[in-house]
Design a protein around this nucleic acid. Structure first.
Length: 257
DNA sequence: ATGTCGGAATTATTCCGA
């Protein structure tokens, strides 16, 4: 089974690109972020034609998440309790035997911006939810755009990034708190010393200069880790395809036995 | 050069967010 997470940066603008990727990689379950459209406007037909059912939690203009699945799909939750006013950022569904959650975590903008403490509060609510809902032996996945580089190894800035937005102790403590709930960062578990990124700014030729961050993650419960055969970042899909513009994020793919 | 995108508000141009 192949699962994936991908921040598409606007599904309307990315639809042909996403279809091309789905047809090429054939994942079974995908968490999408930054749809930037309302649920009424979701292009279900395009996904159905490729064999996917989709559950969505969108809003106008910004944010928005969805789970597409070739396996039976039953939605369990839309929205992070107590944080709904911060945008459509979390959806959970059962996909086959997986309890699959995808999140678009707040960006925070800058360490001295009002959104930064709100970002930390959003993570505190996420940690509380994960802690309350985790069940022994469950095949649970929490994937998405976390907007945190957990270690210096996850940033092109290395330890020179420490203290900047995405690189602060406060953000890293929240990410660690998710791991302390029993989740594993599957990419890092599989590739302990690899410097690899999932996001590169559109500006300044960041992709070609290697100026990236690893902020898109697939976290898995111990049962998921035990079934993980491979984890890779689909960097090729950060490049233009057939003249179509890529998202600023690459998909992250996990192969499960 | 904070150099690019996507979307919205308004009508090809500006803003906002990332």
């Amino acid at each position: 089974m192949r699962i994936a997470t991908w921040n598409v940066n606007g599904l309307r603008a990315r639809l042909d690109f996403v279809r091309f990727w789905l047809d090429d990689r054939r994942p079974d379950v995908v968490g999408f972020q930054e749809l930037k459209l309302e649920d009424d406007g979701f292009p279900h037909e395009a996904f159905n034609e490729l064999g996917y059912r989709v559950e969505t939690y969108g809003q106008k203009s910004w944010n928005g998440v969805a789970i597409a699945s070739r396996l039976p799909l039953a939605v369990e939750r839309r929205g992070l309790p107590g944080q709904e006013e911060f945008g459509a950022r979390l959806i959970t569904a059962r996909a086959g035997d997986l309890l699959f959650t995808t999140v678009y975590c707040p960006n925070g903008k800058d360490v001295d911006h009002a959104d930064f403490p709100r970002k930390l509060g959003w993570f505190d609510a996420l940690v509380a939810l994960v802690a309350a809902e985790s069940r022994e032996g469950e095949l649970a996945v929490l994937c998405g755009d976390f907007n945190i580089a957990p270690q210096p190894l996850d940033s092109w800035l290395g330890d020179k990034g420490d203290g900047r937005i995405f690189h602060t102790d406060g953000e890293r403590q929240r990410f660690q708190a998710l791991l302390d709930c029993g989740l594993h960062d599957l990419y890092r578990a599989r590739h302990p010393d690899e410097r690899a990124f999932s996001w590169w700014d559109y500006r300044g030729g960041a992709f070609h200069r290697g100026h990236g961050l690893r902020i898109d993650m697939v976290l898995g419960s111990p049962a998921v880790l035990a079934r993980t055969a491979d984890v890779w970042i689909d960097r090729d899909y950060r490049k233009k395809k057939e003249g179509l513009t890529a998202s600023d994020h690459a998909p992250v793919i996990v192969e499960l036995e």
